[in-house]
Design a protein around this nucleic acid. Structure first.
Lengths: 237, 237
DNA sequence: GCGTTAATGGAACAGGAGTCCCGTTTGGCG
DNA sequence: CGCCAAACGGGACTCCTGTTCCATTAACGC
């Protein structure tokens, strides 16, 4: 049954099957906006999409399956990411982009739903990981270039810096439920940047061998302001 | 019906009623560990607690109500927080404390459940906010003292610094689903500290009047390394 | 102790989510 | 243009969640 529902629609992906998928995913988003993930009923989605509920159950199986597919769909639409040549501007643009995604009525409802679904469904969790892995990698290039330019310490983990920009926003959104606005986003970017400049994102394990031939240059910025000694000792108070 | 279920057990809180609550909350945690929030069934909880399912429905109403009550219970147990006199040690202890909470099999399942419940239930969301508001305030005192000692810039938002320690951990736990370990926790604390030292948590609106008479002292650390100009302009790329 | 009544427990009941069956539609192909 | 099988659609059926009713138990006040 598992792999059957996964395969449904995969052998004749043209015409009607594609229209059904499009209609169902659109209806799913509409329902998410109106009722949220907990109120997502397969019946309702089928009715709104104008398809039989049997079809929805057969192809997606559960509400979590619906939002997982929706996330996969969103992941494939590459979003334009800024590349201004300034790390600060790029990170702020990144924060603004995340803010836009979670603030947008339609996208925000979808993200919340996927995150909720990911807590109980492996497929949704995988789709979510895939989405963020892709987005983080895209934005990380800007940070990498900053490292190359010597604006950030050598060995800085670019992906970690990008994640650090998003983390406070999602923390507010999911845990503390505080409002997230432009100001919070801008501050989040500046905080990540400040930590990066201080060398807080320098990898503990330096890469065994530098992959390309750009080793000894751009040491102009070094870790400062942060104690990096005795990491990982006497934890778990 | 709403306020009735809320009132149940409130007029005769002794003896049997208290025992029932204790048994039901314990059973809820057990079920959360074994099946997670999505698999939390009122029947199962009632059976495991050895009480009638009618009672569980009457007093808690829904799975979300159960975890909300559980969170309220946890919030009342004040956890010991470190106060070593060193901000760095305190923030690392804070990170370790959060790590311990989300890593612990029983507590971790509970937190995940409450967060999931908070996405669809206002009562659970309120309980969650209350819990974190309390914890953040406790740990913030250590940061405030650091500001008073001059180790961090004047005007630093202590609560924000504490939140910044937790954010990356929850981000990993909820969004990217990466493993969270001692190393991640330690780095998270150091990142928050680095950003704080750089002045990234200095409030935009300085307090109109300094509450106590400690204005002009401890300017040894000032915002540096971070551009604080033109915040909040040209956002939403 | 003793009565009052809040609170619990069991069982029957209702509603809805999810499944199954089978007839109908339609995309892919010669 | 017509065949075949993949995919869809409708309706009946099952099972489980949540509700209601009423009898029973045991806190709390005296």
């Amino acid at each position: 049954m598992e792999q059957e529902s996964r395969l449904a629609g995969m052998q004749r992906p043209g015409g009607r099957t594609a229209r059904v998928r499009e209609a169902v995913l659109a209806a799913t988003q509409d329902e998410l906006v109106e009722r949220g993930f907990h109120g997502l009923a397969m019946d309702q989605v089928a009715a709104r999409a104008g398809v039989g509920k049997t079809t929805v159950y057969r192809r997606w199986g559960s509400p979590a399956g619906l939002v997982a597919d929706l996330m996969t769909e969103l992941a494939e639409q590459s979003s334009p990411h800024a590349d201004t040549g300034s790390v600060e501007a790029d990170l702020r643009a990144n924060a603004a982009s995340v803010l836009g995604a979670v603030t947008d009525r339609r996208l925000g409802a979808t993200f919340q739903a996927v995150i909720a679904a990911a807590t109980c469904d492996e497929e949704a969790a995988t789709a979510l990981r895939a989405f963020y892995g892709r987005r983080v990698a895209e934005w990380a290039r800007s940070v990498e270039r900053a490292v190359e330019r010597g604006e950030l310490p050598e060995g800085t983990d670019a992906a970690e810096v990008v994640r650090a920009v998003s983390a406070p926003l999602y923390y507010r959104l999911l845990v503390t439920k505080e409002p997230v606005d432009d100001d919070v986003a801008a501050r989040s970017a500046l905080q990540a940047l400040a930590a990066a400049r201080a060398g807080a994102f320098v990898r503990a394990d330096p890469p065994a061998v530098a992959p390309s031939g750009e080793e000894g240059r751009s040491r102009s910025v070094r870790a400062q302001n942060v104690t990096t000694a005795d990491q990982g000792s006497e934890m778990r108070g």
